[in-house]
Structures are given as C-alpha cells and as structure tokens.
Design a protein around this nucleic acid. Structure first.
Ligand SMILES: [Zn+2]
Ligand SMILES: [Zn+2]
Ligand SMILES: [Zn+2]
Ligand SMILES: [Zn+2]
Lengths: 507, 507
DNA sequence: AAAAAAGGTCACTAGGTCAA
DNA sequence: TTGACCTAGTGACCTTTTTT
C-alpha cells in the first residue's frame, strides 16, 4: 500500500463528472459553500465541468494517480496494518502527509490559487500524453486491494503504445484538466496556465483594459475565485490569473504531442510534486515534524521577495544575504564580477516559480495567512514589474534556494542516512538546479552539483548517475559550490541549522 | 417579443389586456382565488404569457411535455382513458403521474414555489436550445396519441442541426419561459432561476437590504405571490425567491446555446422526476401506499435540517444519529478520525439537495403543511448560514440518507422482488450515491453499493447488471456498507423498519 | 495535415439608471 | 420603493494563426 495515494484525494471530484444524469441542481451545493477551501472548490468545479460528458471513464484519473504513485518510491512503513487498513483506506486523504494540509485550509478563507489540483493537472496531462491507451481500461474492473498489483497492470498496458492518435482523441474528449483559476473544465493551455475559456478571455480582456482603466477596487483583496464567484471580483480574479502564472507573453503555440517537443517551459510539476512529497516523507522517516519547517521556509521566501523588490546594490545584498559566508568568498566575488561587467540579467526560471508556488500551496499550513499573501505578492511582483528579469543578486538568491533545499534534505536525513539510499529527492533537486543554472558552465556534472561535498557524508553520491549529458562548466562555480557546501553541509544538527537560519538577520 | 412588462401594467386592468381574446371575466376568477395554489398560478401564467403572443405555436409546449413524459416510465395505471385523452393533451402537466399531486395542491394555500413549471421551464429551455427547429412544427399539428412516436419525430428533427442561429433567434422571439416567482414573462435566468425583471431586481435589493434591516414582518407568512400580489408582501416574495433556488451566487453568465456546453447545472429534472415516479410506481406495484412514508421521510429530513443547524461535536452527533449502530462501528470510527485530524468539511452534495426538494415538491401530499415549510426552511438555511459547508457528521448523515433510500427501496420490494427486475430506480440511486461518495473507493461495484447484503435477500442483486464500468473502490466503505447493511437490511418488515426509524430518538 | 492556442463572435446576464 | 430599459461584462462556440 503506497502512502502517496492521498494525492488522489483530489480526485473524488473527478468522479462526479460521470454521473450527470443522476445528479441534480448542483448550484445549490455551490451556494452552500461560501468559504470553501480551494481543494473543495475544485471538487465542485469538476462536477460542473464534466456533467455533460457522457462517455467519461472514471478509471482514467485513478490510473493516472496510480502511475504517479508508481513513480514514487515505495514506503516500507507499516501504515497498512490489517486492522488499520480499514481505516487507512477510507482516510487516505487525511492520514497521509501530503494531504493533511488540505484540510487545514478549510477553516481559512485561503485565496491561494495554485493548488494540488494544478499539479495533478500537470501530472495527468503528462501521464496521459505518455501513455494514452489506458482509457479503455476494462481490465481494471476488478480493483485490486493492493496498489502494487494495479500498478503492474498499468505498466503492462503501457507496453503497447499503439493506436495512439485514436486514443489521444478520446483522451481529449474526456479531458480532466481543470482551470487553475476557477476550477472549471480547462480548454487548454492559455497564456501560461491551464484555464477555461472564460478565464482565458477574461485575462485577455483585462490585460488590454488594465492599461487604461485599472482595476475596480476590491475591498477585501482576498476573494475566493471559483466557478461561482469568478465573475464577482475582477481584481482578485486577475490577481489569481497572475498567481497561477498567466501572462500575455507566456503563450505557447503549436502542437505539443510530446513533452520534449514542447517549446514552452518543461513540465516539471510531477517531479516537483514528488520532490515535496519526498521531503515530507523524509521528515516522517526521520521522525521530524515537517510543520516545524514552516516558519523557516516562509521567512526564507518572504525575504526572497524583499530582495526581489529591493534596489540595493549587489554588494549590499550580498552582504545581507550570504549565509554568513565571508564577504570575499567565491560567491560574492562571482556576483561582484558578474555585476561589474554587465547587467547579467537572468530570466526568472519558470520552474523556480512553480517550485515556489507549489511549496507554498502544498507544504505550508494554511493557517498561516502570510503564505497566501506571499505567493500572490511574489507572482504579482514578477508580472507587474517592468523588467521581469532577475538581477544577479536575485539569481544568487535563487541559487541559494536550491541550496537551502539540499541542506534541508541533508540535515533531515543525517540522523539515519539510510533513507537517502536511492532516494529520488536529491536527484531531482540536483537536476532542477542544474537546469536552472545551466547558463553557468560547470566543470563537470560530478564535481559541481551532484557530489557536492566529498568531504562529508556520501549521501548524495548515488543520486544522479543516470543523467549523463555534460555541459562545460566554469571552475569558479564549481569551487563556489564546494565552498558553500563545506560550510553548509557540515555536521550541523537540525536545531543548529534552524537557529543558524533564524539568527541571521535578513532585513 | 419583448420580455418586459409594459409600463401601462400599472393600471388595474392588467389582466384584461392579455385576456381580451379569451374570456373577459377571467380576472374576476383570478381575484376570487386568493388562495390559489402555486400550480394553478403557474398554469395561469402560461396563459398570460401566450395570450399576447399571437404567433405562438401551442404545440410547442405539448411537444416538450410529451418528450418529458415519454422519458418517464410508462404507467400501467389507467390515467389516460380514451375519453380522458382529450383532457390529457390539454392538461399534460397535470395528468401525468408526476403531476397528480399538483391537483392536491389546489385546495391548499401552498406557497411552495418549486413546481412542475420550473422543471418544465428547464426542459423547454433545453429542448429549445438543443433542437431549435421545432418551433415551425407543422408536423406536430396532429398530435400523436402515443408519445413514443412523437419522440421519434422529435429526434429525427434533431438530426439536422443547421440554420441554428436563425432558429435561435426565432426561439428567442417567442420565448415561453415565465417567472418562477410571480408567473410573469421571464426575461432570462437571473440569480439561479427564471424570473422577470421585477423579481430579479427585487431579489437583489432584498439581498442587500436584508443584511441590515431584515424583513418587514408578514403576518400570515403565507401570501400568494403572483404578478398582482408580488409587491404586497416582501417577506413572502423573498422566501419564494429563495425557494425557487435564487441566490446571489447562483448567477449564470455567458451564452448557453446548448446544454452540453453550459457551465451551469445540467438539466436533470427529467431523471429526477422519473426517479421519484419510479419510487411511487414501485409502491403501487408493491401494493404499498406511498403516503405511508410521508411522515417518515418528512421527519427524517427535518432532522437533517436540525443536524445542519446544530453545532455539536462530532461525537455527539454521531451518538445521536447513528441508526443504532454501535459507537465504535466503522462509520462512527471513520467520522471520528476525520474529525479528529482536521475539520474535514464535506460539501453538501447537490443531488441530495435536489432530490430532497423534488421529493418534497412532487412526492409528498400537499395536505401536509410541514413539507412546504420544510423545503423553504431547508433552502433558507442553506442560503442564510454563514459557513455553508457540511461537517463530517453531516456528511455521514447524507451518506445515511442514501442508505435510507436504498433501505426504503429494499423494504418496499422485498414482498415481491420481481418488481425490481430491470428497475431503473435502484440503478439511479446507486449511481447517485456512487457519484456522491466517489471519493471513497469501493472494492468493486458489486460488493459495495449494489449487492449490499449478500447475507440477506437477493433483491438488489439484479439491479445494475447493465452498468459495467468499474471504478476501483476501497474495501473500507464496502465493509462499512456491509455492516450497515447487515444491520438495516436484515429481514425487517416494513412495520419493523418504520418503528425502528421512529423509535430512535434523534433529538 | 494535424494539433493547439490565440482571437473573434454574439447570445446572455448583473448592475445601474431614471421615471413613475 | 418599484420596475422597464440600458450598458458593461461574460462566456460557449467558432475561426484563424502558429507550431510540429
Ligand atoms: Zn477558469
Ligand atoms: Zn476581490
Ligand atoms: Zn416575477
Ligand atoms: Zn406575506
């Protein structure tokens, strides 16, 4: 029994869509839930969306989730006792680490728009395009109690990738991607995010109109945006559009049959989702409450925003933001040099933005109101600023975000390093970082990111041996990473690291 | 045709204006019927509407009703005698099994607003938009006695979906939808129901005003709301607005050319009507008077309302509301776990609400005054409450409502199980329940809902063999149902069950 | 050529206005 | 206060453009 199954808790909503003839006036249900959380509101929107699709196969999503789960490492934890299994399976949603936060949202009027559903959308999309012949899944009629066996069935079906175009059409018909803004059925990828037709057109109109008129002021600035309330407040709807990554210049054209062929940002939601899941899982294995890290992460990213908005010089920022690295460390030197020569502007990597959003949506307790404002603030800044580019100091900060994750991972697992054995988290973090900072040519793959600290433990050694492409890298960043590594990857306990992070005065 | 009321309507001779081609003393009859029931007043409103539309084809409504009736299961009852057939054509609304209760309304001063007319409005709207070329229905001038043939004709016409825009305009021209509140010509779908301009604005104003002032008290609480009296009592008018499903968040935007593309509630009135019809029909076949169940159902739902309004803890509610299940049964345990971890709010399923409404509107004898108040109370609660979300105990109750229906069905048919052969009621209830509680993965279709109690009788085994799609389901709910099943589906007679239900102290 | 997204169209409604 | 009428949005469906 895989513990990641909770992720499919989103999907209860999907199943509603197949029962259009037997469901009744769903609007009343809508109006009954004013302060619905995002998760639940997605739940509702699915009912709306799919009620008129008769030939939907409810197994589709399940299989998607199954494949998603199959990609995750299996847990040896004993959550599925024979007598506990009963409760566990019904309470998949609440008992697993990933979904327990969703319920915490429910008492808040959270306006965070990027939700688990968005990630699932990505995952569904990816999985669907990868293997599109599962829609006729009559072989799944008998649902095996153990998810492993069903995974095997699924992978068996994957072995025959023929009749792809036909099935793709079918897949398009009963598409389960929902709008990231309002939760209604998505009609495709519009202006940088999966949205419905209504939100697509709304964004286009508002983008044109906003140039001259601006918003009609919203008082609360915190409106819930779902299919029912989307027409009420245009400001909050627009801000949510921004928050989910929409932008007039973020369009994607042409056909995108494969993930590799896409000319747009790569679909990294899956890896990000499992990345976060793995982090939590590691916390569980290490007997560390993940919620302890909440304030830490939130503060970290809030300072990121302040840095993004600040107009100080590089030196000031470096002085303020180095993790107590000495000022003439390679990192500051690098930044100084880059800054002196040219502007050295770096575009904000999409995946960093997504990472940011996903983090705040999934990991942080919704009771913390700051998160909601933070993510909107962050996205909004990036969209509204004139030069939507990161300066060097900002880039350095992004760099440190990745490092932060690695350090976090390291510290969490240093008590029992065995959990890192073949753990995909480190590999994924590394790949992510490498893709983000590929413009900096590393000396070699192994010397820079992956085997960061040869002097310390060997936890990261076995992670990314599969990736073999090599891009020439400058030795300066390699030694830079080495130095940061030696500083941060030292044998700090978690409390040490925590105080190390908190004691530092960012502002 | 202008949907707006002519400004000259102010003068007292309003009705004369439309009835001038008909009996001139209809207005006196109108005034003589102060306590006219809703059905008749809607009935009249049709006459209102059509009188000043000279180019109306009277067959339009008949065809709509025909298709609606034809979708209902045929009754072997002798409601359509040959000499009655004439009346049948003109009184389609009232003579069908669904509408036979509407006559019972006529002697009461019922203020229940959700009526057949509303459902018919939906159907008319749907049918009109789906196939917009029947308005020139010269082929329907000869009204076929068998409804099936006319349906075939109707569906034949559907095969040619061209000239859509032209026909749509024509449809718009002679629009027959009337206001669900006052009965005047509707100007569109406003705030969740087809209303006229006056009632639309009244609802908006009252919704704003009610926040600070509240109602101006009505003494009788039972005012008739029609085009003449709608301005008299604001409280009763507002309550009728609520009852017909209006709400500030139930707006529908955009164009709605086809039902398939609409983002609004699908037209499921038909299936619901037939569902209820089937229930009654089963009662007839089982030689059981359906009116026996009235008090049972009413009490059951009245307790639902009380539960919705209560703010007790989960444990209290569970203790109070389990159908004498032991406290540590899987159901209560489930609820307890859900409640302990997080708020775990569950939305009220729409179909349950609508099922509730339709039940009370159609099935229950109108002589029972409680029903009218109950449905208004229910709708009103859902509109007025601050947190319009269901908690876990409420969700559990909804679950049990579905079980209640199944149990009801079971008990009704256990005397002669042959009536369940290919009966659509069980299938529909099952699908309804499955769609509602799809987040709980059942082990398989057959083990969970349909063949609930393998240990008991085999009445439900043959119901949904036609449905072959399978969704993976968790064994917990299957066994949960099994347990409830074993408790409720034991060999109880109907009287036993009745006393079992009534003896239990809900409050 | 096919697929996917941008852009256009027009039916449709919420909210405002003003006369009565 | 009521209600006919108007206008600014809104969105489902369609066409055009851009990509593979
Ligand atoms: Zn949307
Ligand atoms: Zn707002
Ligand atoms: Zn009206
Ligand atoms: Zn009154």
């Amino acid at each position: 029994m895989n513990c990641y199954e909770p992720t499919k808790r989103i999907e209860p909503s999907y199943n509603h869509q197949y029962y259009q003839f037997y469901e009744s006036d769903q609007r009343q249900q809508y109006q009954a839930n004013q302060d619905l959380n995002n998760q639940q509101q997605q739940h509702q929107s699915y009912e709306y969306t799919n009620t008129y699709e008769l030939n939907l196969n409810p197994n589709d999503l399940q299989i998607d989730v199954e494949s998603f789960v199959a990609n995750l490492p299996s847990l040896e934890e004993s959550d599925t006792h024979s007598n506990n299994q009963y409760v566990y399976q019904t309470e998949l949603v609440t008992l697993t680490p990933d979904t327990q936060y969703q319920f915490q949202y429910q008492n808040t009027d959270s306006s965070i728009p990027i939700s688990k559903v968005e990630i699932l959308n990505q995952i569904i999309h990816t999985t669907t395009s990868n293997s599109s012949n599962y829609s006729t899944s009559s072989s799944y009629s008998s649902f095996s109690s153990t998810s492993n066996s069903s995974i095997e069935q699924y992978q068996d079906l994957n072995q025959s990738p023929k009749k792809k175009s036909l099935k793709t059409k079918i897949k398009r018909k009963d598409d389960k991607i929902c709008c990231n803004v309002c939760g209604f059925k998505s009609s495709g990828f519009h202006y940088g995010s999966y949205t419905c037709e209504a939100c697509k057109l709304f964004f286009r109109r508002t983008e044109k109109q906003i140039r001259k008129t601006g918003f009609n002021e919203c008082k609360t600035k915190n409106c819930q945006i779902n299919i029912e309330t989307r027409a009420n407040c245009s400001e909050c709807r627009y801000k949510k559009c921004i928050a989910v990554g929409m932008g007039m210049s973020r369009s994607r054209f042409g056909r995108h049959t494969t993930q590799a062929g896409s000319n747009y940002a790569p679909n990294i939601s899956e890896s990000l989702c499992s990345l976060i899941t793995n982090l939590k899982q590691t916390c569980l294995k290490s007997k560390i409450d993940f919620s302890i890290l909440n304030n830490l992460i939130v503060d970290f990213y809030r300072k990121t925003i302040k840095l993004l908005q600040s107009s100080n010089s590089i030196e000031e920022e470096i002085t303020n933001l180095e993790f107590s690295l000495q000022v003439d460390s390679p990192l500051s030197e690098l930044s100084y040099l880059i800054n002196q020569n040219k502007p050295s502007l770096v575009k904000l990597p999409d995946c960093v933005l997504v990472l940011f959003c996903v983090l705040f949506d999934i990991n942080i307790s919704s009771a913390d109101k700051r998160i909601q404002n933070t993510i909107i603030e962050f996205n909004y800044y990036l969209q509204m600023t004139e030069e939507k580019i990161l300066k060097t100091n900002q880039f350095v900060l992004i760099l440190k975000i990745g490092l932060f994750f690695k350090v976090l991972r390291h510290l969490l697992t240093q008590n029992n390093p065995s959990v890192l054995k073949d753990d995909p988290f480190d590999k994924r973090i590394t790949d992510l970082m490498r893709s983000e900072f590929a413009m900096f040519k590393f000396e070699s793959d192994d010397s820079s990111m992956t085997s960061l600290s040869p002097s310390t433990s060997s936890t990261c050694s076995s992670t990314n041996s599969s990736q073999s492409e090599s891009n020439g890298q400058s030795p300066i960043l390699a030694s830079l990473f080495l130095e940061i590594n030696q500083l941060l990857y030292r044998n700090m306990t978690f409390d040490e690291f925590k105080s190390f992070m908190l004691d530092f005065e960012f502002d």
